[in-house]
């Protein structure tokens, strides 16, 4: 999930790559992050909250495992099903949490809103005020999404930002930016690429990158 080379074909193989993280006991002594002041402060906070009874022993470790298990592959599977099953797609647009639950995905209370790319509209998501993101479906957001440059520029010059991501859209397509300012978390439903007729859901899901579900990429076959 946090592999810096986050290509589409990594989506299904993200689990199990994150070895060596602390599960509440000391990480390996050569882990450079362990010695830093901030790392110790985080540990101090956790220990104090456990002592205060706010956190149960092992609760943080279990939550880390839970978070690690969520990768963009979950979102890609939802998109692939929407591409192949019109009834599911309709349910996804109308009641996203229930549709995700059909696939065994628990959004944990996230109010998801799905915006569909069409021949006339390309959607792009940003949270200018902080970095709101559908973490319970896509996992941890990428650093660039949280960056001040993205947060500042996505609303005022989306096409310039898209160009940096290698996406150029004709003037006739409306670029619609969504600023995630309140309680909703957004999923872009990208357009199904041409030339994928008859493909299985699994094969289609491999085309759906994390960035295409944020709106800074377009899937291609």
């Amino acid at each position: 999930m946090h592999d810096p080379h986050d290509h589409a074909h990594d989506q299904g193989h993200d689990h199990g790559h994150d070895h060596g993280h602390s599960h509440g006991h000391a990480p390996p002594p050569d882990d450079p992050s362990f010695r830093s002041e901030q790392a110790l402060a985080a540990r101090a906070l956790r220990l104090l909250l456990e002592e205060a009874g706010v956190l149960a022993p092992g609760e943080v470790a279990r939550q880390i495992d839970r978070m690690d298990a969520i990768t963009p592959a979950l979102g890609a599977a939802v998109v692939a099903r929407a591409w192949t099953d019109p009834g599911f797609k309709a349910r996804l647009m109308a009641t996203p949490a229930a549709a995700c639950a059909e696939m065994g995905i628990d959004l944990q209370g996230t109010v998801l809103h799905v915006v569909e790319n069409t021949a006339s509209v390309h959607n792009m998501i940003v949270c200018t005020l902080c970095s709101c993101y559908p973490k319970t479906l896509l996992g941890i957001p990428p650093d660039w999404y949280k960056s001040f440059a993205y947060r500042s520029r996505a609303v005022i010059e989306p096409r310039s930002v898209l160009a940096e991501f290698g996406v150029t859209l004709p003037d006739g397509i409306e670029v619609r930016v969504h600023d995630s300012t309140a309680d909703l978390r957004y999923l872009v439903l990208p357009a199904r690429p041409a030339g994928t007729e008859g493909w299985s859901e699994e094969r289609l899901a491999a085309l759906v990158t994390r960035d295409s579900m944020i709106g800074t990429a377009v899937p291609a076959a």
């Binding site: 006739g172 409306e174 619609r176």
Partner: peptide
């Protein structure tokens, strides 16, 4: 919203 917006007039922004 933006003076001198560098894109087509049809582009939009949605905010909650």
């Amino acid at each position: 919203l933006w003076r001198g917006y560098a894109g087509p007039a049809g582009d939009t922004l949605e905010v909650e």
